[in-house]
């Protein structure tokens, strides 16, 4: 699949944003109001900002962004619509949560209730995003049980790395948070490795012969058109195997580096070094996530590319 930057940026940033919001919400649920207004505001600002930039970026992908509102209408059948609905709906608990969380006078119970709701909705939004992809029967690499967990864990991992990066400079060395970040980052890494292993191992079961109903072997002789077209461009994108391997190693390395850079927060508390490390960890995690998402598209092989000469899909 053609890795469209708008969609990659969208899913990476909104994933990180929802991860961040969800963790903040859980922190609120556990500890009550934010420790400082500035900290809380920054967390919420970054979280909502990422989510919003992501959504705006996804609108760039549309041919008719001015009609985007229509995308809310088909939540009964469409995961994309559900995602839109959830994304918008999540603003409500996010704002209420922010209102409560930033106010030291808020009732912890209220924060807890709204926080849990927010976390749940963040998770559901990410689930919707993942479902857009893994519900498609047309792409072997997406119709994969690991896609959903990867999306969720990546969201938590990038969100946690971001939260850590914000918390540490504020002198809030939170060991628990660092542990969550490290575990999530490593978890994402492991899941991703499993995912790659799975897609590499899963046979390409569909052949051009099946796509055409003709006796094996079937090979493309003439292109339908010698000029380019949308399907070739969108579904026919092919990333070189070696290039993909190299990028996979980068993702693993970046996630590993992110995890390692999160460790100082665990051991050194909230020192300046830990803060720098945490910021770098977040950057590394986001970079890893971006590449991971790029690969998620670039490695995806669409069934329809069979008609354009791919031997198996």
């Amino acid at each position: 699949m053609h890795p469209a930057y708008s969609v990659i940026v969208f899913s990476t940033l909104s994933g990180a944003g929802y991860g961040l919001l969800a963790l903040a919400a859980l922190a609120g649920a556990a500890h009550g109001p934010a420790s400082s207004f500035a900290f809380g505001a920054l967390v919420l600002g970054v979280g909502l900002g990422l989510v919003t930039i992501g959504l705006l970026s996804s609108m760039l992908h549309l041919g008719h962004p001015e009609r985007a509102w229509r995308a809310m209408s088909q939540w009964r059948s469409s995961w994309l619509s559900r995602e839109g609905v959830m994304a918008l709906a999540t603003y409500v608990p996010a704002v209420v949560f922010g209102w409560l969380w930033l106010d030291p006078a808020s009732s912890p119970m209220a924060i807890r209730i709204v926080g849990l709701l927010l976390a749940l909705m963040c998770a559901l939004t990410v689930v919707c995003t993942a479902m857009i992809y893994c519900s498609l029967a047309t792409i072997r690499q997406w119709r994969q049980p690991l896609v959903l967990p990867v999306y969720l864990v990546m969201a938590v991992a990038t969100g946690a790395a971001l939260l850590l990066a914000i918390a540490t400079p504020f002198g809030r060395g939170a060991a628990v948070l660092a542990i969550i970040a490290v575990v999530a980052l490593l978890g994402a890494m492991v899941l991703k490795l499993c995912y790659w292993h799975a897609i590499d191992r899963a046979p390409r079961e569909l052949t051009l012969a099946m796509a055409t109903g003709l006796p094996e072997p079937v090979r493309q002789w003439e292109l339908a058109h010698t000029a380019r077209n949308f399907v070739m461009q969108e579904m026919g994108y092919h990333v070189g195997r070696r290039h993909a391997r190299r990028l996979r190693r980068k993702v693993v390395a970046l996630l590993a580096v992110a995890a390692i850079l999160a460790l100082p927060a665990l051991s050194l508390g909230a020192g300046i070094l830990a803060a720098i490390a945490a910021v770098l960890s977040a950057a590394s995690a986001l970079a890893g996530a971006l590449i991971e998402r790029w690969l998620f598209f670039a490695e995806a092989e669409h069934v329809s590319s069979l008609y354009y000469g791919t031997p198996r899909a």
Partner: peptide, 26 residues
């Protein structure tokens, strides 16, 4: 008149039967 040009339907089609009109945006 209501298509937003998100292209998801084309991803869902195994037969490559949908073609996006880049200029018309639908």
């Amino acid at each position: 008149d209501t298509c937003i040009g998100c292209k998801l339907c084309s991803w869902a089609c195994p037969y490559g039967a949908r073609e996006y009109d880049y200029r018309a945006g639908v």
